[in-house]
Computed example of a mutant assay.
Amino acid sequence: MPFLPRRALSRMSKPSVTVLDYGSGNVRSAVRALEHVGAEVKLSRNADDVLNAQGLLVPGVGAFAAVMDALKSVGALNWIGRRVAGNRPVMGICVGHQILFEEGVEHGVRTEGMGEWPGKVELLKADVVPHMGWNTVEPAEGSQLFKGIEDERFYFVHSYAVQEWNFDVAQPRMKPPAVTWSQHGESRFIAGVENGPLSAVQFHPEKSGDAGAQLLRNWLETL
């Protein structure tokens, strides 16, 4: 077999991604979407699979509190934290995005989130809730996730979101997170965050057609 440079070899191998299986309802569609864009995917709640994959995808549907309870029940909060601390890529989708913030407030009940980013997940201010369907986003300048799809529309299904962002960079030389926004009714809300190894989107890329597929490809390129 002729010698191949390291870069050529890396292009021949598929990036490995674990989709965290903790009882969320949209895991199969996430697995299929990642396989479609070229990933080698495991659906697992096994610690080794979660910690050793090149990328971890955390899906989520339903209530903030229920998702937090389910993640705790399988020990996943610790695994996510270990990956982030070790600079190992993690991506959250929908409620998997929301739980990365400080807290969620639903029906007057406050639930503590992971606290990776400041912010409170709260009810959208709009005549029609949930926010269900296609919407545009305002990508952050230099966004890797939205590279080449800055003007596309994505599929949202949610009633709650983070509507304020106040992030203090600990050191002047640190790169601040890239924050993408969207709008529904009176609420301008966070549609995506890119922060080192940690990325998340409020919408469902696996239901967002070609634009969602390209976003997942863009994420795989960072692994």
Rank of each mutant, 00 (worst) to 15 (best):
V109Q: 05
Q202C: 05
G212Y: 13
C94I: 05
R83L: 06
F203L: 07
S73F: 08
V179T: 10
A85D: 13
P176I: 01
A66N: 07
S44M: 01
E186A: 10
V201N: 04
R6S: 09
V27D: 15
V41D: 14
A63F: 05
G212T: 13
A30F: 04
V17S: 02
W181I: 06
S182W: 05
L71H: 10
P177A: 04
S143K: 06
D151L: 03
A33C: 04
L124R: 13
E194F: 13
R6H: 12
G81K: 07
P2L: 11
G23L: 04
Q183C: 15
S208Y: 12
L215M: 07
L215W: 06
D168N: 03
G133F: 05
E106C: 11
E106F: 10
S16W: 02
G196W: 14
V193I: 12
E103D: 11
N195C: 10
L56D: 00
F3K: 11
G25V: 13
W117T: 04
F3N: 02
R32A: 11
H36T: 13
L220Q: 12
L9H: 12
L71F: 14
P139S: 14
W117Y: 14
A65D: 14
F167P: 11
E152N: 07
W219M: 06
A8Q: 12
L220I: 00
G55M: 02
H131Y: 09
F189A: 02
A191D: 13
P172D: 08
S24P: 00
W219N: 01
A200Q: 09
E122I: 02
V31T: 09
V137P: 12
L223Y: 02
K120Y: 05
M91K: 05
P176Y: 01
N26V: 03
G209I: 14
V162A: 07
R110W: 00
A47I: 04
D151F: 02
V50Q: 01
A70Q: 08
G185P: 15
G38E: 09
W134F: 01
T111N: 03
K147M: 11
L198E: 03
I93F: 01
T111D: 00
N135Y: 06
R217C: 04
G55K: 03
E164H: 10
L34I: 01
P2R: 15
G119E: 00
Q183S: 13
S24R: 15
V137W: 08
V109P: 05
R83Y: 08
L100V: 05
G25E: 15
A66L: 10
D69I: 10
A33Q: 10
I80E: 05
L4D: 04
V50C: 02
Q163R: 10
A76G: 01
R110L: 06
R83F: 11
A200Y: 15
F203N: 09
V137H: 14
G148H: 02
R28W: 13
K175W: 00
L51E: 01
E206G: 11
